[in-house]
């Protein structure tokens, strides 16, 4: 009796389904006193619509069949439509990717930089220095081009 009360208390206090299931399995299902507080199978069965009472007023099979007769065709059409839509999407994606690669390649080959003119791109002709000497001696050389200018400054100096 006190065990039943304890189980009831624990059942109410801890609303966790695994815990409640454990209490049901361990105690409630086996205890006649506890089971008396639950509706029996017969009582529940008397409240429910039974299989033998079912009287389907609509011709269910006819409706299902009519819905399914056109179905294979529709399904095929649907699958074809889906397939063609997927193919079209892939086509567009490939074409777009190809275009992007083409434009990027073209811009790279042209030396294009979105941030503005690059220092090297602004130089009209190639500027090369093979060897710099100052006073007959090899010199330290610094080449400098201000941003946005065609001017190139060559700074050469000795270590002395």
């Amino acid at each position: 009796m006190s065990g039943c009360k304890t189980v009831e208390l624990f059942y109410a206090l801890v609303p966790l389904k695994p815990w409640r299931s454990l209490l049901i399995r361990r105690h409630i299902e086996k205890c006649p006193r506890c089971l008396a507080s639950f509706a029996s199978r017969e009582t529940v069965g008397s409240l429910l619509v039974q299989e033998r009472e079912v009287n389907i007023s609509r011709p269910l099979w006819a409706e299902v069949e009519s819905a399914l007769v056109g179905d294979p065709g529709r399904e095929m059409m649907k699958s074809r439509a889906v397939q063609s839509s997927v193919l079209r999407r892939w086509g567009w994606a490939t074409a777009t990717a190809f275009l992007i690669v083409l434009v990027t390649g073209f811009l790279l080959l042209k030396g294009f930089r979105p941030g503005g003119a690059s220092p090297t791109a602004a130089v009209p002709a190639r500027f090369e220095l093979e060897y710099v000497r100052v006073g007959g001696q090899p010199a330290n050389t610094v080449i400098y081009q201000p941003q946005g200018s065609d001017m190139i400054i060559v700074w050469a100096g000795t270590n002395k």
């Binding site: 409640r20 299931s21 507080s37 639950f38 509706a39 009582t43």
Partner: peptide, 11 residues
């Protein structure tokens, strides 16, 4: 738990 809750409510 669903089943027992339902049975309890019905009762």
């Amino acid at each position: 738990v669903y089943l027992f809750q339902a049975r309890k409510k019905i009762k």
